[in-house]
């Protein structure tokens, strides 16, 4: 009798995990992803200007990120706007991105070409995870300062595959990649590259 009750409870309660496809918002919530021990950016520091020449997307199925506990997670309808908003998250990391413009008319500005190679979600038992992989080619004039992949990920407990928790997880994964990108761009700004 006890096992029957438990099984019934399981079936009833599992209904609370939504299977309705979730579409991510175009907005990037820019969650705090830097560890508390990381050095803070000085408020008086000169912001680093970056011209973002391209944001390409080379994923096989750009409309889909995967599924978590059977719930499909889809990319926003306007993927370009979404990625632009994500890259704009560099601003809170001490880098001011300008999309295909050179407002200060610098003669030899820092230019970045970005490619989204991967953005996917999955689950590991009762946890869920998001992984992003951005490739950046950073140039100044004719010289390539850096070209590498920046991986961000976030693994958290899966409560109910809710919209908010999935959105936050993907945003944190992007945020973790942006942290590394910003670090390299700031170093390039200071001429350390």
């Amino acid at each position: 009798m006890r096992s029957v009750t438990a099984a019934l409870a399981a079936v009833t309660l599992c209904a609370c995990v939504s299977q309705v496809p979730m579409t991510l918002s175009e907005r990037f919530s820019d969650p705090q992803t830097r560890p508390a021990t990381a050095p803070r950016l000085s408020r008086n520091a000169q912001p680093c200007t970056l011209i973002v020449s391209t944001i390409a997307d080379t994923r096989i199925e750009p409309a889909l990120l995967g599924s978590v506990a059977g719930r499909p997670v889809r990319a926003p309808g306007d993927v370009s706007a979404w990625l632009r908003n994500v890259v704009a998250g560099l601003e809170s990391r001490g880098v001011v991105p300008h999309f295909d413009t050179n407002p200060r008319q610098e003669t030899s500005p820092l230019v970045a070409g970005l490619t989204l190679r991967m953005a996917w979600v999955s689950e590991i038992h009762t946890s869920k995870t998001a992984t992003t992989l951005l490739r950046m080619k950073l140039t100044r004039g004719e010289s390539v300062l850096r070209e590498r992949d920046y991986r961000g990920s976030d693994t958290v407990m899966n409560w109910a595959s809710g919209d908010g928790e999935l959105q936050q997880m993907v945003d944190r994964a992007f945020g973790a990649a942006l942290d590394q990108i910003a670090e390299d761009v700031r170093a390039a700004c200071k001429g350390r590259m």
Binding site: A7, A10, T126
Partner: peptide, 13 residues
Amino acid sequence: MRAAACLIACALS
């Protein structure tokens, strides 16, 4: 509480 119940239910099922 609801989330915890969901977790248990999913584990059992």
